[in-house]
Nucleic acid binder design. Structure first.
Lengths: 339, 339
DNA sequence: CAACTTAATGCAACCGCTTGCATTAACTAT
DNA sequence: ATAGTTAATGCAAGCGGTTGCATTAAGTTG
């Protein structure tokens, strides 16, 4: 059996409680004894037992990571894994562990979350998505469970911790990237407006126009379904337009790739005829031909920061809910031509 | 505070141990009392406390999922997430939980694994990769810790549980897919032979040739670096060859996309001039233009099966190490032309 | 009917750590 | 020297289950 706090205590010639307090670096233990205890721990190769500790202190150092309920397709987005990686790396180095909730439906996920809370396994969560209305958030909020969102908070916005990209700024930056290269006729392709990241990026796109005194053409704005099997007809109209855009800001790399393919099919060359800038800087952008210039949103850091916040709040319950913005940067892959 | 086993016991008019035994469906409790107890549990909404149970029974129902140590790039492969999803879905529905280990270096990961074992948090692992020589496997094996591999076992092959694709068969099937469409000059593009999945797929490719009485051209076989920034010069030679292949089997979708781009650049049209079939059926294949026909290896199922095996073995320690083969199937996306 | 099984349940000691409170020792102040 | 502080440590009762063994009641046998 593993070495316990008692073994350490006997070796150090103190009581178990002293050892326990030493681990927690409790100030009421003298530096001298602490040293003795630490020496004993080192000699025995002591590792504290998590389960016991959690049980006794009634708090599980375990964070549940909730993936969006969905079918296969959505998961392909590599930043989920990157966020998970950011979270777990931070957690593991802070003696926290994580557990994944990846159910197929929101109901199932809610069920999983609920039972994890009830059986004491998990007492804080990070959701890797944000939606207008989410039953899991409702539940967590009503139970007073600590949670953080990666993305923008819709519900209970002032009371929730969230870590996000400044999508408005990102949209503006992307647009300015094109403006700086001489483009003035810039289109925007995004998703329906309930997907806030998309509409925020668009808003930034409009801001950039305003600031640079460029007109905003309503025709230049295209909306596609959530899963863009194919681009809408409006796009083909727009591209046949005599006065068509010379560049596009598109809401993410998927759309970027889709747009690029579309251009190819109708004989337009990227970036010679059409410049493209998209978001996320995923491998999809990099593997496209030509690769698509994209705004990197630093997903690993999003995850790390979310973990940091959760752990801080777990250990410091009176902290107010923080909002964190992670910086982004444009990665030029060559799909933006200078006019 | 949550409802405990004692509350249930009082309500049911039995002792705590009886409640505990009822949970475990212990045969020495009469059906009659069990019913009483279950009714009480239901009435109180009782959920067993994991931590307490684990502590008392000295076994943590937690499985560690180890991702390959690596930098950002490798993670993009969506099947990691899919495997995680398969694992967690199975685990969550069997009262097991999972935790992710996603460190940047093998050493860090080993350290994380080691301390998770020592502090009793985790006592079995699933590795989402396989390598010729891995210090984590060495460690787990030497400590007698239960683990499973997704991929082929190199070390201690007879004693380890692994879940894998039959890559030889898959390679053969892919090749036959082309042969059936009239191709006789078929190339193969793969990775260095230490990546067993690649060499196995190639072996299957050769088998298909043998069985169909087709000659194997050594020139038709191209090897690329692990991270294919660009395809090797030998490929360009091969494609300029008067007698060049009309089709290629390539080791994964990345290579498939790379090949397709390469063809485009030198003016060859897929599938008219060159047919391509690759493996994994990832979104990369689907988003390519044209989409690339690919062998789906059912990653979610790989994960589920690994979890199944680990849980079986955890609850039944005398079981011998199993090897599981998950079926694959070709998904035709239109990159294979009938001659 | 006494002696003996057998089946069903309860007792109580853990699992390894935490923590409020008591205890002890060493000081200070009067 | 006595009472009053203060600092450092130990005691012991949990946390919520598990489980070997004891106990009790019912059933069997000669």
């Amino acid at each position: 059996m593993a070495v316990t706090i008692r073994d350490v205590a006997t070796l150090a010639g103190v009581s178990p409680s002293t050892v326990s307090r030493t681990c927690k670096n409790n100030p009421s233990i003298s530096e001298e004894t602490k040293e003795k205890v630490r020496a004993a721990m080192a000699k025995l190769g002591y590792e504290p037992n998590f389960q016991a500790s959690n049980l006794a202190s009634q708090n599980s150092r375990t964070i549940g990571i909730v993936l969006p309920a969905s079918e296969r397709s959505m998961y392909v987005n590599s930043f989920f894994l990157e966020m998970i990686r950011g979270i777990t790396m931070y957690c593991n180095s802070h003696q926290y562990i994580t557990t994944i909730i990846a159910d197929e439906t929101e109901e199932d996920a809610l069920q999983t979350v609920r039972s994890m809370i009830r059986n004491g396994l998990v007492n804080s969560f990070i959701l890797l998505y944000s939606k207008q209305k989410d039953s899991i958030i409702d539940f967590l909020h009503s139970e007073g469970v600590l949670y953080a969102l990666i993305g923008k908070a819709y519900q209970f916005a002032n009371q929730t911790i969230y870590v996000d990209t400044d999508n408005i700024q990102a949209g503006k930056d992307a647009t300015e990237h094109l403006i700086q290269r001489g483009h003035t006729k810039i289109g925007f392709i995004g998703y329906e407006k309930t997907l806030l990241f998309s509409s925020d990026r668009r808003y930034g796109y409009e801001l950039a126009h305003l600031e640079h005194g460029l007109p905003i053409h309503p025709d230049y704005h295209i909306t596609v379904e959530h899963t863009p099997n194919q681009l809408p007809e409006t796009l083909s109209k727009l591209l046949n337009y005599p006065n068509r855009p010379t560049a596009f800001v598109v809401a993410d790399d998927f759309l970027g790739v889709a747009l690029e393919h579309y251009c190819q099919q109708i004989g337009l060359v990227v970036p010679e005829d059409i410049s493209i800038i998209s978001f996320n800087n995923s491998l999809f952008a990099q593997l496209a031909l030509p690769p698509i210039t994209s705004v990197d949103i630093n997903s690993i850091q999003l995850g790390m920061e979310a973990a940091t916040q959760i752990i801080n709040h777990a250990e410091n319950p009176k902290l107010a809910a923080t909002k964190i913005i992670i910086p982004h940067q444009i990665v030029e892959w060559g799909s933006c031509k200078k006019l």
